[in-house]
C-alpha cells in the first residue's frame, strides 16, 4: 500500500480549499469502504485523503414531510435505515442501503460515497434517480445543484470539477400514493456486486388503478447508472396491467448497453434488465397497494 497524507477537514470551505490545492491526487474520505480498498490494491493513486466526517453539513440526516430529505454526503447506511419515517417515505433507498456489503460495511459506507465512487453497478444510484434526488455540490466558486442522473459521467468519473465535493443529497417529499423499490440480481444472496440493478418509483391515482407517473433506473448495464426516461414515460397515464409493465421493461432493455465480464455476459444482463424492471415496478406498485 502506498504512503499517503491524511487530513481531517473541519469545514466545507477547508475541504474545498484542500481539494483545489492538491488537485487530482487528493480524494475525499468518507466511509472509505471503496477508497481504502482501491488504494491498497493500487487501483487508485492517492497522495492526500481528506476526511470529511468531522464536517457538520455532510452528517445531516433530516426528513420533513413537506421539505423532503436532506442526506449528508457522509451519513452511513445504518443511520438511514434506523429512521422509521425515512424507511416509510423512501423504501427504494432503504432497499439499497440494506444490501450494500454486510452489516459491518453498512456501519461505515454511505449513499454519498456510493454515488461519488461512480461505479456503474452502484446500488444506491438507481433509487436516487427514481426518487428525483439532487446533488448539492460545493466548490471554489460556491454551491451548485445537479440532478443525480447527471452526476456520474463514466466508470469512476463524476461531474465534480476541480476543487468540488458532494455535500448532500436532497430528495423531494414523496407524493400521495407513491412508493419506490430497488432490487439487484446477484448469483448469491449477499456480499456481491450487482450483475444488474433496477430501481423504480411509481405514483398511482387515488383509486390506485392508474399510474400517474413512474421513473425507472438501471445499474450495471452501461458505463454509468441509467435513467430509463422513455420506459418511464411509457407508463404515465397507463392503467395498471402486465402489458404496461412489459412495455416499460422492453423499453428499458432497449437502452441497456452492457458489457460481458466475470460477473455476467451482455446477453444475460440485457435479459435481466427486463426481468428486474418488471419486478421493481411490481414491487413499487405493491407497496402503494399495501399502504
Amino acid at each position: 500500500m502506498q504512503a499517503f497524507e491524511y487530513i481531517a477537514a473541519r469545514t466545507v470551505p477547508e475541504a474545498v480549499a484542500l481539494l483545489d490545492e492538491k488537485g487530482e491526487k487528493a480524494r475525499i474520505l468518507a466511509g472509505g469502504t471503496d477508497l481504502i480498498v482501491q488504494v491498497r490494491e493500487a487501483r487508485r493513486d492517492v497522495d492526500w485523503m481528506i476526511d470529511i466526517k468531522a464536517i457538520p453539513e455532510v452528517n445531516v440526516l433530516a426528513y420533513d414531510a413537506e421539505a423532503g430529505l436532506t442526506l449528508g454526503a457522509a451519513v452511513p447506511c445504518y443511520q438511514i435505515y434506523a429512521e422509521a419515517d425515512i424507511c416509510d417515505a423512501y423504501p427504494g433507498i432503504i432497499d439499497a442501503t440494506k444490501i450494500i456489503g454486510g452489516t459491518a460495511i453498512q456501519g461505515r459506507a454511505g449513499v454519498g460515497g456510493n454515488l461519488c465512487n461512480a461505479s456503474p453497478a452502484a446500488d444506491c444510484i438507481p433509487p436516487l434517480i427514481v426518487l428525483n434526488a439532487t446533488c448539492v455540490i460545493a466548490g471554489p466558486n460556491g454551491e451548485r445543484d445537479i440532478p443525480v442522473e447527471a452526476f456520474c459521467t463514466s466508470p469512476g468519473q463524476t461531474a465534480l470539477e476541480k476543487g468540488e465535493m458532494l455535500v448532500a443529497l436532497k430528495i423531494p417529499a414523496p407524493q400521495n400514493n407513491s412508493s419506490s423499490f430497488y432490487l439487484r440480481f446477484i448469483p448469491r444472496n449477499e456480499m456481491d456486486i450487482a450483475v444488474v440493478g433496477a430501481g423504480a418509483s411509481v405514483t398511482l391515482d387515488d383509486a390506485k388503478q392508474t399510474i400517474v407517473s413512474a421513473r425507472i433506473a438501471l445499474a450495471a448495464v452501461a458505463p454509468t447508472p441509467l435513467f430509463a426516461e422513455e420506459a418511464s414515460a411509457l407508463l404515465a397515464g397507463r392503467e395498471l396491467s402486465d402489458e404496461a409493465i412489459d412495455a416499460a421493461a422492453q423499453a428499458a432493455q432497449a437502452i441497456a448497453r452492457p458489457i460481458s465480464d466475470m460477473r455476467g455476459t451482455a446477453e444475460q444482463r440485457t435479459h435481466l434488465v427486463g426481468v428486474l424492471t418488471r419486478r421493481a415496478l411490481n414491487g413499487a406498485i405493491q407497496r402503494v397497494l399495501d399502504a
Binding site: P187, R188, N189, E190, M191, D192, I193, R263
Partner: peptide, 10 residues
C-alpha cells in the same frame, strides 16, 4: 468478492 463461495444466506 467475485470468486463466489456460498454464504450463510445461501
Amino acid at each position: 468478492l467475485d470468486y463466489r463461495m456460498p454464504t450463510c444466506l445461501d
